[in-house]
Computed example of a mutant assay.
Amino acid sequence: MIIDLPSTSTSAINKAMVDLRDSGGAVALGRVLTLVVITDDAHAEDAISAANEASREHPCRVLVLARGNKRGAARLDAQIRVGGDAGASEVIVLRAYGPLVEHGETTIVSLLLPDAPIVAYWPGTAPDDLRTDPIGAIAQRRITDSAEARDPAKALDSRRTSYRAGDTDLAWTRLTNWRALLAAALDQPPYEPVTSITVAGAPDSPSTELLAAWLAAKLKAPVVRARTKRGTGVQSVRLERKSGAVELIRPEQSVATLTQPGQPDRRLSLARRLVKDCLSEELRRLDPDDVYGEVLADGLPQVNKKVMSVRDAQTAGKLSTPAAAAKRQAAAEQQSAKVSRSMKGAPPEPERSGDLTLAAPVSPTPAAKKAAPRKRAVAKKATA
């Protein structure tokens, strides 16, 4: 259900919400937080769609502040969405025009759920300093997305200089699967220190910078940043150890190959994460992400000290070439297919009953068939 309220006020919106609950039974019970989405009018629907999907895991009230044209008279248009048009939440879209664009915090204060945490989310351009932003000041958690900024590198630097407990960025959340795979690979013997790190990714990918910063902060090893084509995201990570290199390569955007000394290459699902999945993950926790803060403060300054092209890194032996990566991935696919075929063709295991194996009946041999009548005759004579 969608209810339009053109040229309205916050008091009229609250009255409409009360009338809606009385008539339709739509209540705020079970809402665990208030999600405030600050965006522009052109990108509001994309942000609402991501918030709706995230609300299926985290029922909440979604307040979308869509800032319109600053020129002209002050006007506030509202839209209330409940039911199938709002996922598991109730969505209030506020489109502000004129002077109201600069006073969004006064617009949303009266619409916040009482005694519920506040999470602020900027899906596009965010303030340089979230600490001084009026909405950021009242929120327990502040979520930005440096990848959607006009200058991702500058946006990431702003996040570092203005960080305070409760801040996070979806560029960091997109690395959850990368971090899990690399941590699992290093959590196996031999437990040797990493001597050098090479991270390859696009220059416009803040996730690549944060991944390199995380490895530098945690492994205390020098980092080489290899730059690939723009728009390719994170492409590969190579960790050098005495026994050999651990390398995680994603030549495509969905499947990666993990190479470890003494082990067969493995193909792993490593697709790019959608915004709704990243947003859902961030809403699972309302406490500060201390690791993210440590990466910004300690790891990020170490990343840009040594940068080279991906071709130079491959020539220096710091990264595998695309041909070698493709060959490894093809070999891993063939091995996986071979194992699958052998498993399909294997005979079924005998059924077990307690500690006894119920073996399948064995067919008698030709010699046994010939001896059977003689054995029966001897047995008959003996009984006679």
Rank of each mutant, 00 (worst) to 15 (best):
225 R>I: 04
18 V>R: 13
357 T>F: 12
196 S>N: 08
275 V>K: 00
30 G>F: 11
76 L>N: 05
218 K>Q: 13
129 D>T: 04
370 K>H: 08
243 S>A: 14
314 Q>M: 14
233 G>V: 10
86 A>F: 02
187 D>M: 01
32 V>E: 15
110 S>N: 14
33 L>G: 05
171 A>W: 00
323 A>M: 12
339 V>Q: 13
281 E>M: 11
8 T>W: 07
5 L>A: 07
251 P>G: 03
238 R>H: 10
351 E>G: 15
9 S>H: 12
296 L>W: 03
294 E>P: 01
78 A>Y: 10
197 I>E: 01
151 D>W: 10
205 S>V: 09
293 G>F: 10
329 Q>S: 15
341 R>E: 12
11 S>N: 11
97 Y>Q: 13
69 N>K: 08
201 G>E: 03
80 I>F: 05
122 W>L: 10
248 L>H: 06
100 L>T: 01
283 L>D: 01
266 R>E: 15
202 A>G: 06
23 S>N: 05
100 L>E: 07
224 V>G: 01
216 A>Y: 05
361 P>H: 06
131 R>G: 14
85 D>R: 13
8 T>A: 09
51 A>H: 07
256 A>D: 02
153 A>W: 06
118 I>T: 12
272 R>P: 01
31 R>W: 10
305 K>M: 05
117 P>K: 05
218 K>W: 01
370 K>G: 00
172 W>L: 06
70 K>V: 05
264 P>V: 04
340 S>G: 07
258 L>K: 07
270 L>W: 07
184 A>C: 00
23 S>I: 06
170 L>C: 05
188 Q>A: 13
244 G>D: 09
96 A>H: 09
9 S>D: 15
40 D>V: 00
290 D>V: 08
189 P>E: 13
322 P>Y: 07
334 Q>F: 04
301 P>C: 03
74 A>E: 14
299 G>K: 03
342 S>D: 13
347 P>T: 06
230 R>A: 15
62 V>F: 02
141 R>S: 10
250 R>K: 10
214 W>E: 06
126 A>N: 04
163 Y>E: 08
319 L>H: 01
315 T>C: 05
335 Q>T: 10
195 T>A: 11
23 S>Y: 07
384 A>I: 02
121 Y>F: 15
19 D>G: 06
208 T>I: 04
160 R>S: 13
323 A>F: 10
277 D>H: 10
262 G>D: 05
225 R>L: 12
242 K>D: 14
62 V>D: 02
73 A>W: 05
172 W>Y: 09
49 S>H: 09
274 L>F: 00
227 R>H: 07
377 A>S: 06
94 L>D: 11
205 S>L: 03
164 R>F: 12
287 D>T: 15
96 A>L: 15
296 L>K: 05
210 L>Y: 09
46 D>H: 09
181 L>H: 12
286 L>Y: 06
142 R>F: 09
382 A>R: 15
156 L>P: 04
81 R>Q: 14
310 V>S: 12
267 R>E: 09
255 V>Y: 05
120 A>F: 07
209 E>N: 03
10 T>K: 04
322 P>S: 08
41 D>Y: 01
